[in-house]
């Protein structure tokens, strides 16, 4: 069970260049901001957007290879797709929607209906067989879409923002159900999302896509521990720097020096958690090695903590208690001193 895809294509202003391999044992989430090309990548795998270059191969069978002029049309690819707003056929009953794939692939009505009923049973939808999709709730529609995609026993299941169409109150529950159903499916599972929570909850492996290229991939723990782009750093909520390390000092690409307790050398990323950033009104006593002046630019409350944006030679975000905001009068802005312990700077190769 394996998917090997190298997708190269140009669609409007989007240049997509993604290489992705996936096996059956894991759920892969393609995570990225809007407009990064996630949906286009899924559509390319489905054969709905042709490749300019590259290759799509599933279990050793080539679906598409523009150089060798191979193109298996969408309807002959063993895939199942759950679309973002589900696209259930409004003129067909729930049962006919789920049986649609089987009927289209030549299964007789009786057999197709029987198997569709089994799927409805499995997804707790048996009572809605004769209902029209537009009479269902968002969560139910999502399950119908899943049943419809799975009914043909696809070897590759593609889900495009499977929870985006749901309101927040039902999302958690539907996500739990979806995780269970994904676990019981045997083929390759690839989902696309812009929601990091959704990606981390549902996937075993994240692939981060930004502006058409993969910037990072790995388990959710790996990705969140070592962000490799500003996008991921923002999602995780840490300060990310890049620079050249030598002799325990990091020369940042954006200017400034950062002392680190790491013997790394060369092009590296450095992460500083906002909690590890200390903010003072006066130049701190003692000898922290990283001390610089900055200006408090804004304060945001995040739960029981406050996040302060500080601009300076090295700009970053510091996390302090709301009490500290009051004590230091940070909300009013103004000059502050920043200190970061060298041991709090996590460094890893770029």
């Amino acid at each position: 069970m394996s998917l090997a895809a190298e997708v190269g294509l140009q669609l409007g202003r989007l240049r997509l260049d993604v290489s992705l391999a996936a096996g059956g044992a894991e759920v892969v989430a393609l995570l990225g901001p809007n407009g990064a090309g996630k949906t286009t990548f899924l559509r390319a795998l489905a054969g709905l957007v042709p490749l300019d270059a590259g290759r799509v191969e599933l279990d050793g069978v080539t679906f598409e290879d523009p150089v060798r002029r191979v193109f298996v049309p969408t309807e002959r690819r063993p895939i199942g797709v759950v679309f973002q707003d589900y696209l259930l056929f409004p003129h067909l009953s729930v049962l006919d929607n789920v049986a649609f794939g089987l009927r289209s692939r030549g299964t007789g009505r009786k057999t197709a209906d029987g198997r569709a009923r089994d799927w409805l049973e499995r997804l707790d939808l048996a009572a809605y067989a004769t209902a029209r999709p537009d009479s269902l709730s968002g969560g139910q529609r999502q399950r119908v879409a899943l049943a419809r995609a799975l009914a043909t026993d696809p070897r590759l299941l593609l889900l495009d923002e499977p929870l985006a169409a749901l309101d927040a109150s039902t999302r958690a529950e539907v996500r739990r159900d979806l995780k269970r159903h994904l676990a019981s499916f045997e083929g390759i599972r690839l989902l696309v999302t812009h929601d990091p929570l959704e990606a981390i909850a549902l996937a075993d492996r994240l692939v981060v896509l930004e502006s058409g290229t993969v910037t990072q991939s790995g388990t959710p723990a790996e990705v969140t521990a070592r962000p490799r782009s500003q996008y991921v750093a923002d999602l995780v909520g840490v300060n990310l720097f890049r620079g050249a390390a030598a002799g325990g000092v990091l020369s940042l690409a954006g200017g400034g020096l950062l002392a680190v307790a790491d013997a790394a050398a060369g092009d590296v990323f450095a992460v500083v958690h906002p909690r590890a950033v200390a903010v003072h009104r006066q130049r701190p006593e003692g000898s922290p090695r990283n001390v610089w002046r900055g200006r408090a630019e804004g304060v945001e409350l995040a739960g029981d903590r406050a996040r302060v944006r500080v601009s300076g030679e090295i700009s970053l975000v510091a996390e302090v208690t709301p009490a500290a905001v009051a004590e230091l009068a940070l909300a009013a802005g103004g000059e502050v001193w920043i200190s970061v312990k060298a041991t709090e700077v996590a460094v890893y190769p770029a």
Partner: peptide, 10 residues
């Protein structure tokens, strides 16, 4: 909708 149908083998 037509694309959805095609992914279902139509």
């Amino acid at each position: 909708y037509e694309e959805a149908a095609r992914t279902l083998g139509a």
